[in-house]
Design a protein around this nucleic acid. Structure first.
Length: 180
DNA sequence: TGTGGATCTTGTT
DNA sequence: AACAAGATCCACA
């Protein structure tokens, strides 16, 4: 049983005052394709899959932390990803509203091989009519795959959306369904 | 199958 | 404070 802990990135980290953040970043080779990653204090801060040469949200993300010190660690990002990815207790940075964090917590509890609907999550976080907002919140998640937002599908069984490309969502889901 | 209204959160103005 | 835009859902034709 592997768990994932979501640690809120302190608001103060965003401001360009005081100590500079030491962020490292680099491309990661994953079993589902190339992804862009960023790390802070040994914790994953961003993981986004490439679609062509685009990584959804990367530019916006870096602009938020424009005053940090960015260091490209290149291929060592893959080593980091593999080393930390196989630990049973992983921990990642998140930055979001209380609502978004509750959604991300909820989806993190869905085990591999299972899927839930957006309204299932809305129900779980005691905001039963917020299914649509749940979708938006999942789409705002900066940690692809580790926070398993791909396990949310529509109530009628259709796929729903995926920030990193629908074909990837399909691929991950079928891998998790069969391989487990 | 598809369309329209209901519903909630968020970013922008 | 008001508005538009979402990774939705439900009823109804």
């Amino acid at each position: 049983m592997s768990t994932i802990e979501l640690v809120q990135l302190p608001q103060a980290y965003f401001r360009h005052s005081g100590d500079q953040l030491d962020i490292v970043f680099g491309d990661v080779k994953t079993e589902f394709g190339l992804a862009r990653s960023a790390w802070l204090e040994g914790r994953l801060l961003f993981l986004g899959f490439y679609e062509g040469d685009e990584v959804s949200g990367w530019d916006a993300f870096t602009k938020q932390l424009v005053d940090a010190k960015w260091r490209d660690i290149d291929h060592r990002a893959t080593e980091l990803y593999q080393a930390l990815g196989q630990q049973s207790n992983r921990s990642v940075w998140v930055c979001g509203t209380a609502f978004q964090r509750s959604v991300w917590e909820a989806i993190s509890n869905v085990p591999k091989g299972k899927t839930v609907s957006y309204s299932d999550i809305a129900l779980a976080i005691k905001n039963p009519k917020a299914a649509r907002a749940v979708g938006s919140a999942l789409g705002a998640n900066n940690i692809a795959y580790w926070i398993p937002c791909h396990r949310a599908v529509r109530g009628d069984g259709s796929l729903g959306g995926y920030r990193w490309g629908l074909s990837l969502k399909t691929r991950i889901l079928s891998a998790e369904a069969t391989h487990l």
